[in-house]
Design a binder for these strands. Structure first.
Lengths: 375, 375
DNA sequence: CTGAAAGCGCTTACAG
DNA sequence: CTGAAAGCGCTTACAG
């Protein structure tokens, strides 16, 4: 019987890891080879203490005499001991893995978020496990719960729009897994959230266009499933209203945060009479699409139509003309989220209620796609 | 003494996980809460067999009677048992984590690679741990070794350019960790590599330009530290040569795979006399930069100058005009790599020498940035 | 084909 | 401030 044959026989999808092991004349699979690494027992023996005391040092318990601690730390450094995360995790009933659960398809958003989290995790002993998901999938919640329970994650960071799903929060609370939700508004207690304040960014976009003298302005919103869509639009409209400008329904299009919807919604807006002299697209992808629509209509940006985006991802500076946009500090947000999780990985019985809410603010970045309103 | 105080006292960066735990009147940190999950013991008891037999079923050993297996599987399904990866990992001396180690800064490349790996890992019980790195860092090799040893990874996927570093291979072999290297040429045994054949893509770009009648052609290469730079250029030059066209030194610029170097190298090439009627930039970022240089020089693309990129990332279709480019199936490559790793996670004592090399081929995607050579 | 014992490397619960 | 015993949930090594 070949090795590969019975691997395929599995009936239990959840369990079929595709590997095998048994006794009785089978080829042995060994763990990582080489000389065996030192364990807590080696440290204890060398230091002449019990392993429990070494454990206390590892876990930074205050109940160790200073010189005992120093001696143990010296030995740890000398023999290059590093506690096994799996053994620790098994005893702790909790892994040293931090998850990133996302459904935002933008690669730059995802990578920036990962980099930010890793900034905070570097040297901490935690590792980052990525877990894209799809809320449209009927098994989404079941899969999510299985993932969290099975891996016994230390904590998880959720980004929009999955972060906006309260059913996910409920599962996390039930299981007792730490979590941080990234959102444009405070949808949870301060201890569980990082707020990106997209509304402020919407206002900044409106202010910029108003100051350039634009009065006939178009807007392309994101999909209704993202809270940020409403915030960006809300801020934009508020600021215009404060300045006695208004956005009429004809000049509002609903996009889907994609390049293609930017083209189609942009083309539509350019047909309005009077033609808008400025268009605010709720993200950079769509703003890049608007640039294409402008070109296809034989118009110029910014001479005929100003365009402003949101996010300041790389596409914003790669297109022509480079986009004026509103920058969201994604990497910074990722760092804050992981820090918060590591700081208190959802321990129960502690009081986080007084914890300050973590928040960031978007900021306007002016480039070449916006100019004075044509007369 | 406050809880947060002594956390900061850590002297051992490697060990300071920032958490604490001890007995003696400290608040208890508990593992994931809720009702306790069923273990292998529960299954064994319910099935009236030993846990070892259940273990055999989990690991798909052939040495279990069919009806015993079925009975156990039924109980597993009924009570929703799922083996604990940490306990399994501890006993196996090996985790069920697969690492992605990369230093390519392109977000889309990174995300596509992750998605591809996850395609292969879905439902397998393995999880994906991401690990960006910087070969320029003096502690790079030490950090890398520590990461692999400490996490006892099942395997790791390496992408260019870190995949091209033989010192990394040596470490992996020493430790006995499974690995797959992504590279543009076969730099390792078939069992350890996925080849992207960039040379073929370079040839396709040259063929396309030659067929459009271009004879004065410029080239912008990537950085010498990427093997793909040489392959893309090599293929391009070979094909031109086969067609009796040649690339003179004046018409070759060295870029760094960045948008900015695309602008500067493009601007330089446009100053040549005669002016090139076509430019092949070795990736999309640089090709997008060339478009900017063309516009700044008051030239048109493709009427005056054709441009062709490489990768077919999203930027290629977002710029104006949409770029003709050479598509690399990154996600597919990621999937193949993870499959290969899961299929045989570096077990020793097995014969992988006859294993077929895994390879993919890039393909030309024609859009609007290339046209007939101007007369 | 199956099982009892020992062990993976840590931490908890308890005692001093 | 420190330690001996038991346990986390699995697999290995051995025996039958």
């Amino acid at each position: 019987m070949s090795r590969d044959n019975f691997v395929a026989k599995s009936t239990e999808g959840r369990l079929s890891s595709g590997h095998m092991a048994d006794d009785d004349n089978q080829p042995r699979r060994r763990g990582l080879g080489g000389e065996k690494k030192p364990t807590i027992n080696d440290v204890a023996r060398l230091a002449g203490v019990s392993k429990k005391t070494v454990s206390r040092v590892i876990n930074q318990s205050p109940f160790v005499k200073a010189d005992t601690r120093e001696k143990i730390n010296a030995i740890i450094a000398e023999i290059g001991f590093s506690p096994d995360p799996q053994a620790r995790g098994l005893a702790f009933r909790r892994s040293f893995l931090i998850g990133l659960v996302y459904d935002n398809p933008n690669p730059q958003y995802v990578v920036n978020m990962q980099l930010g989290m890793l900034d905070a995790m570097r040297g901490s002993g935690y590792e980052l496990v990525v877990h894209p998901c799809n809320r449209g999938n009927p098994t989404f919640l079941t899969d999510f719960r299985r993932f969290i329970e099975r891996q016994k994650l230390w904590g998880v960071v959720l980004t929009p729009s999955v972060s906006e799903d309260d059913r996910v929060k409920i599962i996390l609370d039930e299981i007792g897994c730490g979590y941080i939700r990234i959102a444009s508004v405070p949808v949870d207690e301060p201890a569980h959230i990082i707020v990106s304040n997209d509304r402020v960014g919407g206002r900044a976009a409106a202010r910029h266009l108003a100051e350039l003298g634009h009065t006939t302005i178009g807007f392309i919103s994101g999909p209704g499933t993202f809270r940020s869509s409403h915030e960006r639009r809300g801020g934009f409209e508020e600021e215009l209203k404060d300045r006695k400008l208004k956005l009429t329904d004809d000049y509002i299009m609903q996009g889907a945060y994609t390049f293609e919807t930017g083209i189609s919604c942009g083309a539509e807006l350019l047909k309005r009479t009077p033609r808008p002299t400025a268009i605010f697209a709720a993200n950079d992808e769509m703003a890049a699409g608007v640039l294409h629509a402008i070109r296809r209509a034989n118009l110029r940006c910014p001479e005929d139509v100003s365009v402003i985006g949101f996010d300041d991802f790389q596409i914003a500076s790669s297109v022509w003309p480079p986009l004026t946009t509103v920058r969201t500090p994604t990497r910074e947000i990722g760092r804050m989220a992981a820090e918060k999780l590591i700081g208190h990985g959802g321990e129960e019985g502690e009081d986080h209620s007084r914890e300050a809410a973590s928040a960031t603010s978007p900021a306007l970045v002016v480039r070449d796609s916006t100019g004075p309103a044509p007369r």
